[in-house]
Design a protein around this nucleic acid. Structure first.
Lengths: 414, 414
DNA sequence: CATTACCTAAATCCAATGGATGGACTAAGT
DNA sequence: ACTTAGTCCATCCATTGGATTTAGGTAATG
């Protein structure tokens, strides 16, 4: 259980609350932080001093006076902390170095062979990751750790990747330990969709506060869930598997053994297949698609370009996928009662708006009679690197976002 | 925001943590509570004394010695606190008086006219509720308040019922304020499925800890969601609307305006209709069903009895509903990553096992390949009064279950 | 136009409050 | 004599509330 708390933890927690408020509410003064956090002015003052001393925030000018002493404005210091983020995907690894405000300072991408060997990939990624901070002139003492975002089911307790689909040869890989050993740093592991949601919260500030669902499309489809400013991870760390929602579509079999799951219909390969199936090879040739499993990445890119250019066949296929996602998202939105859906991940690049329209239509058919507010559907603020940026923000979020764990778990921040 | 915390709140919170541990882990000693709560022995000792003084727990004998002084066992005191619970349904109101351990001391049920008038119902319910504590010889100072469970969408902030389906004439009813005025007590309001889940957690102790999904069937179908021992209420207090999940079935139109929702297929009226549609009037007559909207309650009771007696037509219809629920539950379980599904609510009475088998089959087809643990499907520990007991436990849970709100919201327990 | 007194608001100082801690101690068993 | 359960006590530490300091504005005055 381990759910009791104590004083030092309260201090650390309140410090995180103040930092989070400064981060998300742009430049604010101490006096505004009081009502914002529920703390007294005095407490805010103390915590702000600690944050200044720790180099996490800075005073940035003054607000115009409203009749008395001017307010001193506080801002997060980008150079206050850094984190590395790795996004692993079946065919590529993306590594980024991000600072406290979530800006990407360096990034590196390399393709992976298929099948790939876990040990080799971890080794290569770790070495590449460790080179980034040097080339960006980062204070090593402020580099907090490495975040890893990986697809598919994982064992959250142990930090093990179980057996992600499309990842041949990766079964029960203890990624957390492997990266910890390879880098000598603290490592955080989460699934890619959850990481992307955390990244979105970290970057988005008050535009991404409270509750939202992050719909993530990489090699497959997943969701990251933020409820009440807390990440919903579920019992085993695998919440957000929206791909197993039932939808009304021709049955493609799902890895899970069921029929009728959303997942097999909404991924780049399936959409390319759909184009061939619904519009024939002629249309595919017109768009330049070559078909076949190795060409999925390129074909999907061409397909998306065609959608942006207004091609009707391509648009039809993507809109169909949007309607299918809409069915699942409608169910998820009703189940979770969130009022914001964010679309992101590298595979969404360029077609967020078309998909967004369909999903918007699906979720908002229900709202009128249910008298609940409208659900907003928006593209991600991060864009295609949501996975890697999310991975880096796992570290930042874990260390600096106020949460339950700070009050109940053992270690407290400095 | 208001998310900072302070010392008195920490005290109250830790006290709740200790009480919750004593409640859920049966009789325990102070020394066991240390590791269980993460607090030191000394702190546990202090908090236990406070709980004893407050009359919420009692010392109940000793554990056998293991070589030294015997452990003094601690138990919750049933007479430490009481709460009233009201479950409102389109055709009946059920009122219960429950004690601290969730036992029902008194209960009262009366049918409602259709359509009913909110003011009259509240008035009648409030008067009946206020009579219960007197007839059970309850210390009025220990009666904490009244919980109300109502179906359908509500405005959690304001305590207003919006426009529940089947509840003609109930639109934007400020139930919270009305009951507060009518009873002069603190009132808590939640939707029936969420209330039932909270009740299940309250009654179930460690058998219902951590994460579960409570599938509730009354006049309609809903879900209550418990994640990490906290209630998931969503942005507007309407989480758990599983009835709007898409399923693969002939399209009955849903109130929400969509087609393909689960809701219209899984309620007593729909199941009675299904029996007529799939097995004809002859089968219906054989079971004694009369058909028609007024007879739904009686027909559904007969149908369930027929299932228990092994009638194939009735079983077919119920199993079909189970498979449909299974599709939605499978999606919800994957999305939330819970490993326990509980079935309850008055309309499930007697057919939990048949439905449970189908739902179990649906959710556990996925688990083998996904390498996540098996999902357990069980009937509720409360049974048919889950709504009213859940309503009472809203009050008890709100006051004594450890949670975020205790650390962040204004008022602290004594 | 410069000076001065006064007002307001922001931020900090300081003593007090109250909860958790750790080590020493007592109580009650084998 | 030993073991285990539970408590006492001095200490630590974060928050609190009231008083105080800091740093501006404003308006009357010379």
């Amino acid at each position: 259980m381990r759910s009791g708390t104590n004083l030092p933890r309260v201090g650390g927690y309140n410090q995180a609350v103040v930092l989070d408020a400064i981060r998300t509410r742009g430049p604010v003064s101490r006096i505004e932080l009081g009502p914002l956090t529920g703390l007294t002015n005095q407490t805010v003052s103390n915590l702000v001093r600690r944050l200044l001393d720790a180099g996490l925030i800075t005073e940035s000018g003054h607000a115009p006076s409203s009749g008395g002493k001017r307010r001193t404005l506080l801002m997060p210091r980008a150079d206050g902390a850094y984190a590395l983020g790795v996004h692993l995907d079946p065919d590529a690894a993306v590594i980024v170095l991000a600072d406290l405000v979530g800006s990407v300072l360096q990034s590196h991408r390399f393709a992976l062979p298929r099948p790939s060997v876990p040990e080799e990939v971890v080794d290569e990624v770790a070495r590449a990751a460790l080179r980034l901070p040097g080339s960006a002139d980062v204070d090593p003492g402020r580099l907090l750790g490495l975040g890893v975002a990986a697809p598919g089911p994982l064992d959250g307790e142990r930090g093990t990747l179980l057996d992600p689909p499309n990842f041949d040869g990766w079964r029960r890989v203890p990624l957390l330990d492997m990266f910890a050993k390879a880098t000598g740093m603290p490592v955080a592991l989460d699934n890619d969709a959850t990481a992307a949601a955390i990244g979105e919260r970290w970057i988005g500030g008050k535009r991404r506060a409270d509750d939202f669902l992050f719909l993530y499309m990489g090699a497959g489809l997943g969701a990251g869930i933020m409820v009440n400013n807390q990440v919903l991870r579920g019992g085993s760390g695998n919440a957000g598997e929206i791909g197993h929602a039932q939808i009304d579509a021709g049955s493609r079999p799902c890895d899970c053994g069921s029929n009728g799951c959303l997942g097999p219909h909404c991924n780049p390969a399936a959409l390319v297949d759909d184009l061939f199936a619904r519009h024939g090879s002629a249309a595919a040739r017109r768009l330049g698609l070559s078909g076949g499993p190795e060409a999925v990445r390129a074909d999907w890119r061409l397909l998306r370009r065609a959608v942006r250019a207004g091609d009707p066949s391509a648009t039809d296929v993507v809109r169909l996928a949007g309607r299918r996602m809409g069915q699942a998202v409608r169910g998820a939105v009703a189940l979770l009662d969130v009022s914001l859906v964010v679309l992101g991940g590298e595979a969404f690049g360029g077609v967020e708006h078309v998909l967004g329209e369909e999903i918007d239509a699906a979720v908002n058919t229900t709202s009128v009679t249910r008298a609940l507010g409208r659900v907003t559907v928006e593209p991600s603020l991060i864009g295609e690197t949501a996975g890697a940026v999310g991975a880096a923000s796992l570290v930042l979020h874990g260390r600096y976002a106020p949460g339950w764990r700070m009050l109940t778990e053992a270690s407290a921040p400095r």
